[in-house]
Computed example of a mutant assay.
Amino acid sequence: MMKKILFQGAGTAIITPMKEDGSIHYSLFGELLDRQVQENADAVIVAGTTGEASTLTDEEHFELVQYAVRRVNGRLPVIAGAGSNNTAHAAFLSRECERAGADGLLHVTPYYNKASQQGLFLHFSECAKATKLPIILYNVPSRTGVNIFPATYKRLCQFDNIVAVKEASGNFSQMAKIAALCGDDLAIYSGNDDQITSALALGAKGVISVLSNIIPADTHRICSSYFEGRREESDDLQLKYLELIEALFLDVNPIPVKQAMRAMGYDVGHCRLPLCDMDVTVAEKMYATLHRYGLLEGDGKRPGSVTVQQAKNAGSISVRNL
């Protein structure tokens, strides 16, 4: 029997908007959550990498999850980032995010420690034992320095609440092996926006997406059209947005997506240090791409957004018309 999955489609790895003083901009966060619901996102992932979890205090982390749960109010699943490179802390985060009302958890591989496969197994085992919530494992070797092997996924399937993986290795041979070994015991989500349809072809249930901060409706459509049998439409949308996806990864996530959203007219603030704004030349390349997709001009997809020249001239853009 297939384990119950948290969602099918596009889950948004949502940013955490900040005020000028660096504190969390909760009212804007609420508006961003509402937009995700209105534009058919299938889930939101709060306090993940894109949400700058590594620079949130524990108190902020839990408040952010609790706020999201209350604001969304059951309209879509709220999945809380709960990963840490300290197993005891990851277990603590799991318990507290469950207490905050999350529908599920996202657990990234322990970063920097470079644990063995046995170490990864033991780490995720403790996380699974700490909560009754369904868990999505998150494998992103380029960021954490460690890769979960397919055989380790298979071992972890013994835990009823380890239900899925966000696979961001970019390795389709590995993804195919995971699907073959784990079958219905482990759902797969693409962790790369440029590989959604390819992952779906291997049986993935969707994507955990940065792109859907910018275009939630069309990111949802990439998945929904595939599942509804309109695969050519899904492929066309994937290809249509490749240049935009590339622009959102011209620097370390979430630097570009936050800068892009400021240029679109959302006053989401800056990333917390040690992440900082892109080099001006790189930023201009991203702004030009946003402009080509009609995301900057006032007569484009976002009323009240700024022009490409205004975007180039302003590192922090505060125009909003929500």
Rank of each mutant, 00 (worst) to 15 (best):
I196H: 02
E246N: 15
G203V: 03
S212E: 10
F227L: 08
L239Q: 14
N192A: 11
R230E: 15
C271Y: 04
L250N: 00
H291K: 07
K240R: 15
A176T: 02
C271Q: 05
D218H: 11
K166Y: 07
P216M: 09
L290H: 10
M175I: 15
I222P: 04
G269H: 02
V280R: 15
S224I: 07
K258E: 06
I188H: 10
D185S: 13
L244Q: 04
L200T: 04
K258G: 05
N253E: 00
Y241M: 11
V252M: 14
N213T: 04
E228C: 13
S169H: 05
G269F: 05
E243R: 15
L200D: 02
D279P: 08
L211W: 10
A180F: 11
V280S: 14
G265V: 01
G170W: 05
R262L: 13
F227A: 01
K240N: 12
L200A: 00
A168H: 12
K166T: 05
N192K: 12
R221H: 08
Q174W: 07
M261H: 05
I255W: 08
F227Q: 03
A180C: 10
C271E: 05
V165Y: 03
S234E: 04
K240I: 06
P216A: 07
G183N: 09
R272H: 06
T197R: 02
E284N: 15
Q259R: 13
I222R: 01
I245G: 08
D184Y: 06
S173K: 12
R292G: 12
Q195V: 01
F249C: 08
R292H: 14
G203R: 05
S224Y: 01
H270I: 13
H220R: 10
L273H: 06
T219L: 11
A288T: 13
Y293S: 06
A247W: 00
L202N: 00
Q195P: 03
A176I: 08
D251F: 03
V210S: 02
L200Y: 06
Y266R: 10
A288N: 12
D235N: 15
V280P: 07
S224D: 11
D185E: 13
A260M: 11
S169V: 06
S169N: 09
H291V: 00
G265N: 00
Y293G: 04
T289M: 03
F227C: 00
S198M: 14
N161A: 03
G206V: 02
R292L: 00
L248N: 10
L181R: 00
D277C: 14
A204Q: 11
M278T: 07
S212H: 13
S209K: 09
G265R: 01
E232Y: 15
N213H: 12
I162E: 01
S224C: 00
G206F: 05
A187T: 06
I245H: 02
Y266P: 09
L250S: 04
D236C: 09
V210T: 14
I196D: 07
S190K: 05
M264I: 10
Y293P: 03
D279M: 12
E233V: 12
Y226M: 00
S173W: 13
V268D: 01
M286N: 02
D279Y: 11
L242F: 08
K258R: 09
N161G: 08
L237A: 14
Y287P: 04
K205L: 03
N161D: 03
V210G: 01
V257R: 08
P254K: 01
L181P: 02
C223V: 11
H291A: 15
A187K: 07
A201W: 07
D277F: 08
K166E: 05
